[in-house]
């Protein structure tokens, strides 16, 4: 489907739904602004203990740290808040952005001696189409559409404020939480446990003798 300007579609990333299939990694390579180069991240959190994976697109900060620490002034934001890849003529390949980005998004491409990053498929979104990764994502961990559609079809609330230590960062891209009441997403908040701590009931078995 093609969105009009008035639809104001948003990008939503719900990491918890990622199934690690890498459709996004493969599709990212097909994006017209960086063909052949995949810029999305997808990590296995800890292969030995969980199948959880962590996808990461650029969150497009309102005040992007990457742009602020760029010595070459090579990272620009468009009027609609897209933080673009480093301007090719300017980027001098220092990797400041790679290290400073609180979300760990920019990639230093050694071959090109240059930073490249997710630009939310500017070629597609500027024409009203969903970015490649959010188009293909089978689990809708990466999702693109209107806020109304999200609220209609999905549980959870949209949040775009994050705490990294004392630094609060607001982004253009949303994530999903159950309750907004707890405020910005604190990335170093403790995580909860789940049945997955003992998927096969082994500890219970040991207790039962």
């Amino acid at each position: 489907m093609r969105y009009g300007i008035d639809d104001s579609p948003v990008f939503v990333i719900d990491q918890s739904r990622c199934i690690g299939c890498e459709a996004c990694v493969q599709a990212c390579m097909e994006c017209g602004t960086h063909r052949g180069q995949s810029l999305i991240h997808l990590e296995r959190i800890d292969q030995a203990t969980t199948t959880q994976t962590a996808p990461m697109v650029c969150m497009h900060c309102e005040d992007p740290t990457c742009a602020q620490v760029c010595p070459a002034d090579a990272i620009k934001q468009t009027e609609d808040g897209i933080v673009q890849s480093a301007l090719k003529p300017r980027c001098i390949g220092c990797s400041n952005c790679v290290l400073a980005c609180p979300f760990g998004v920019p990639k230093y491409i050694a071959d090109f001696d240059q930073m490249m990053k997710c630009d939310m498929c500017t070629d597609r979104t500027s024409e009203g189409y969903a970015p490649m990764c959010a188009s293909v994502c089978p689990s809708e961990a990466l999702w693109y559409g209107t806020i109304e559609k999200f609220n209609e079809t999905r549980s959870g609330s949209l949040l775009r404020d994050f705490m990294f230590g004392r630094q609060e960062v607001r982004t253009k891209v949303y994530t999903v939480v159950d309750e907004l009441g707890a405020g910005a997403l604190d990335v170093f908040a403790p995580t909860r446990s789940h049945w997955l701590d003992d998927p096969f009931g082994l500890e219970q078995e040991a207790l039962d003798g």
């Binding site: 962590a54 159950d178 995580t191």
Partner: peptide, 10 residues
């Protein structure tokens, strides 16, 4: 860490 923090809140 972001993924873990987010998953904890859903």
């Amino acid at each position: 860490q972001l993924t873990l923090a987010q998953s904890a809140r859903v």
